[in-house]
Design a protein around this nucleic acid. Structure first.
Length: 404
DNA sequence: CGAGATTCATGTGAAGTATACCTTTAGGCTTAA
DNA sequence: AAGCCTAAAGGTATACTTCACATGAATCTCGTA
């Protein structure tokens, strides 16, 4: 039982505590700093490629590569913002659009991608029903109403192409031929460095007129980025000895992902603050690491359709009873049983095979096709996350599916 | 003993189906002249 | 007669199913040393 007094004591205690954060947003991934560190070369290249905008000439299409968290999106948005500013001052009609192609049910098919672009122009596009060309036409018509330059940023485009093939890129580059007034420049952002190699030659030459590569940050660079942001985000002297170094090291190991490093910092700070500690210490980072993993999994899992959740639950349950690699067949059997319990129409094994592949793509499970010789071939499924995380995921799914 | 055939359990591609949603069109009803 | 509403017809995207064939190494078979 909570009485009024206890609550008010809590609040007054809370007020007395020294805050740790000054401006938490500086550590969020949406934050765009005034200056970007260690990307001088890339900024210079990208700026040079996009600069023709300011003379109202269409810049070349651009392709940007780099692992996650190497500043691709940040740099691109940063430069675009500057260019937009200057363009505005000089009355140059320039617009940009940003689309993340990975987002499920937003831009993960050709139709949905164009539809999303068209919606960005305030056009009403239904989720299904229209022919794809029709949406293209609506989009052209809107864009082509006046003379202008349009820069479309397609983030994580490798994911989309992996899923539905490269024809879409061909269609996109063809848009310019249809336009009389406006001109479109595409900026493709890819995490996969080999991506362009697998493309059709025509697409390759037209979409990738220019290329810029973003190398990963090393531990030292991560440290200086962290220090810079931390000085904005935190009150002075709340960061314990070696904390920054540890965050940097953690992320440097994961191919120099700055986004991760910053998130780690932020969550560590939040945890410290919630516990009423005055300083962020090393152990907060370990806790933060776990929390981030848990939160990510929770968010991802809950976003999935019921069928995916059920499949995943089957995998988890099997894994609990037998900590070993699992195979498609046994998962499917259990899945069917679960479907009856949850009163869900079971999908065919063919479909579940694809579902498992998608769960693998999401990074929730690891699945690999192997041949067991005489005993057929199957997917070999393993789970990488810590046991505690798996437990959490399982009970989460029990709730979501209304089991037990 | 070893090369080649066999086998199993499922992967994978293509084509078909169900569903949800779209536009167009034609008919019927209302309304105003 | 013109205008408006509605329902049917015809079309699309997506998620899923059905069908049929592809895989690939452990195991089996059989000829040979």
């Amino acid at each position: 039982m909570h009485d009024e007094k206890a609550l008010s004591t809590f609040f007054s205690e809370y007020m007395k505590r020294n805050p740790i954060f000054m401006d938490k947003s500086a550590l969020k991934s949406s934050y765009t700093p005034d200056a970007i560190q260690h990307r001088d070369e890339q900024i210079h290249q990208v700026a040079q490629i996009l600069a023709p905008c300011l003379r109202f000439e269409k810049p070349s299409n651009l392709f940007i590569y780099g692992k996650t968290g190497t500043g691709k999106t940040l740099t691109t948005k940063y430069i675009m913002r500057q260019i937009l500013d200057i363009a505005k001052q000089n009355n140059i009609p320039l617009k940009t659009m940003y689309i993340n192609c990975k987002l499920k049910r937003v831009a993960d098919t050709e139709y949905r991608l164009i539809a999303q672009l068209a919606r960005d122009c305030n056009l009403e596009i239904p989720p299904t029903g229209l022919p794809t060309d029709e949406v293209y036409k609506l989009f052209y018509a809107h864009v082509d109403k006046e003379k202008m330059l349009l820069v479309i940023i397609l983030d994580e485009i490798d994911q989309l192409v992996k899923k539905i093939g490269d024809e879409i890129l061909y269609n996109l580059t063809r848009i310019n031929d249809e336009l009389k007034n406006a001109q479109i420049t595409f900026i493709g952002i890819s995490n996969d460095l080999l991506f362009i190699e697998h493309l059709d030659a025509r697409v390759k030459s037209s979409l990738s007129e220019e290329e810029v590569v973003f190398p990963p940050y090393n531990a030292l660079q991560l440290q200086s980025i962290l220090r810079e942001r931390a000085s904005r985000a935190f009150v002075a002297d709340v960061i314990g000895e070696g904390v920054i170094e540890k965050c940097a090291a953690f992320s440097a190991r994961e191919h120099g992902d700055a986004r991760r490093a910053l998130e780690l910092m932020r969550v560590a700070g939040e945890l410290a603050e919630r516990k009423g500690h005055v300083k962020i210490e090393l152990h907060h980072i370990d806790l933060a690491q776990e929390k981030i993993e848990r939160d990510w999994i929770q968010e991802t899992v809950l976003m999935q359709p019921k069928q995916f959740q059920t499949t995943l639950y089957a995998i988890l349950t099997l894994y609990q009873t037998r900590k070993d690699t699992l195979f498609t067949g046994e998962i499917y059997d259990l899945y069917r049983k679960l479907c009856r319990q949850v009163s869900l129409a079971p999908l065919t094994q063919r479909r579940i095979s694809d579902v498992i592949a998608e769960l693998d793509m999401l990074g929730i499970i690891n699945a690999k096709v192997i041949s067991k010789g005489r005993y057929g071939r199957t997917r070999e499924i393993t789970l990488a996350a810590a046991d505690a995380t798996l437990q959490g995921m399982q009970s989460l799914l029990e709730d979501a599916l209304n089991l037990k």
